[in-house]
């Protein structure tokens, strides 16, 4: 996760309190999803950015997760996210959901 984004996330967390923030991911690369989610939960695993050793324990969600989808009007979701959902396919969505759910509950 870029140093710039780490700084921005850290600033926001200090300003509003980590418990008042959720993170919404919107890309499909599994490696990136994992590394970003870990960075915002446990801190920067590469030890380079400003979140190194800073475990913000932010709640990280992906836009394709069912609990997010259910909160968005269906037509809007279909128009904006429909294509991404088809691209990902149900198996990948389940995988993303499982990974993030684990990070949200066990940390």
């Amino acid at each position: 996760m870029s140093l710039e984004y780490q700084n921005a996330v850290k600033d926001l967390a200090f300003k509003y309190g980590p418990e008042n923030l959720v993170v919404m991911l919107g890309f499909l690369d599994m490696d990136l999803i994992e590394i970003q989610a870990i960075t915002m939960t446990d801190g920067d695993p590469s030890g380079v950015g400003s979140l190194s050793g800073v475990a913000l324990r932010l709640k990280v969600y992906h836009i394709l997760e069912p609990e997010i989808k259910s909160q968005i009007p269906q037509d809007v979701y279909q128009e904006q996210i429909g294509l991404m959902a088809i691209t990902a396919g149900p198996e990948k969505i389940a995988k993303i959901s499982e990974l993030l759910q684990q990070l949200r509950t066990t940390r």
């Binding site: 490696d31 990136l32 429909g82 294509l83 991404m84 088809i86 691209t87």
Partner: peptide, 19 residues
């Protein structure tokens, strides 16, 4: 970590064909 750019593009066009 930029991934396979053409592959991502083809995924999106294929998804559009599904839609």
């Amino acid at each position: 970590k930029t991934g396979d750019v053409p592959r991502k593009n083809y995924d999106t066009i294929a998804a559009l064909a599904v839609m």
